[in-house]
Design a protein around this nucleic acid. Sequence first.
DNA 1: CAGAATCGAGAGCACCGCTCTCGTTTTCTA
DNA 2: TAGAAAACGAGAGCGGTGCTCTCGATTCTG
Lengths: 239, 239
Amino acid sequence: MCDDVLMATTTRAANRAAMESEIRRLGREHLRTYGAAGLSLRAVARDLGVVSSAVYRYVPSRDDLLTLLLVEAYSDVADSVEQAMEAVPPDRHRGRLRAATRALRAWAVDDPARWALLYGSPVPGYSAPAEQTVEPGTRVVAMLIDEVARAEADGVLQCRQQDLTAGLRSDLATIRDEFGVELSDAALVVATTLWSTAIGAVSLEVFGQYGANTFSDPAALFDVAIERALTPLAEAPRD
Amino acid sequence: MCDDVLMATTTRAANRAAMESEIRRLGREHLRTYGAAGLSLRAVARDLGVVSSAVYRYVPSRDDLLTLLLVEAYSDVADSVEQAMEAVPPDRHRGRLRAATRALRAWAVDDPARWALLYGSPVPGYSAPAEQTVEPGTRVVAMLIDEVARAEADGVLQCRQQDLTAGLRSDLATIRDEFGVELSDAALVVATTLWSTAIGAVSLEVFGQYGANTFSDPAALFDVAIERALTPLAEAPRD
DNA sequence: CAGAATCGAGAGCACCGCTCTCGTTTTCTA
DNA sequence: TAGAAAACGAGAGCGGTGCTCTCGATTCTG
């Protein structure tokens, strides 16, 4: 009896857990295959062998499933970047940044649809709930800023001060506070520019802007663009 | 009679022309409002005061309308960039490139949905026909490359040669041929990096990756990122 | 063990892209 | 200028979408 009750209890809960994880899995799969706007709950239901209305027991709406996958993707790419950075010694700032951007690109190339979900055009009619997406969504750029800050602290960042508008100065101050990090305006500009360049280069490649068969070695092109963005950082020995 | 015939003749043709331009206009409007994936021929038909099947007399399919708007957008942004560049004297290469990227950003900020159509995630299930989109789609980057090439020819481009892989060298050679322009590998890297940075910075801003109220002056941030990408170019007098 | 919560199925609503047919109107041509 | 041909708009229809509601059946719980 007790066993029965426990069985029964776990049966329900286990079924629910299995269902939810299966929906996520199929969601990822459909995202990969059909893209964000092509994500269809009915199709997921079909693959699940269940009628369309049934999935609404587990997922409030299509947009909520999208949010789920969005948060998951942000976390995945951030984990991937983090892992790549940590594989390089902490004092090799340039090497760590290089590894970070390479991991970013590799993740995107491996799953273009999820990259599109994160950094592509917003899905029409869908706006990601900030309270769920901001934290995982800022992890990557936070790591870049942090690394540049540590490079500056170590005195290996050589960049001439640019003329900045008062508005921009105050914006940069806000960001500094937000990420809780100490670095100069110039260093912060280096970090955000690196970020822009990386996002731009990856998106151009992944979204097919280079044309079908233009580059046989897009990774090499990506690297030289990143190296250009990294010029203010001194090369560490054996970097 | 002759008048009648002419009237009649023009009535048909004029009606068709008016219809087609109205569909384009409504297409642009819907694109702006609902995004690429939200572009619906039925909705256009409704706004046109006509039954849905009627618009198929003028547009073969939804995707063809999308292609139409895509080509139009590529041409618009290229025109805008071209105009901005031509407003700066031909010898001020850095100033011209600055003006070009600023025009690019201004165009995108003014119409984010069309920017998304050009440089955002591809619309699922839709792939732009290369024979129609490649030419207008490469105009902007062609202008950037051309300007950098002329800067190098004028001897105002100072960039140290990077180590490039053999594959990348041959890719760059292909591009040089494609655009029919003479410039060094290093200069071509400068140009493509500038392009990446510009696209990345604009997309980050327009797609809302900076967060809702992070930057009060995103144009200033864009400018400093571009200036960093433009460092290899000497400043012209009074630039 | 009975009441409550949960579940899957199914019908239904409004929307989508797209195709086909059917009268009407306009244009071309003999 | 009269008749053939082309173009046109309306409407019905097909299969797809997200999402809501109801209705029995199952499962949990007090």
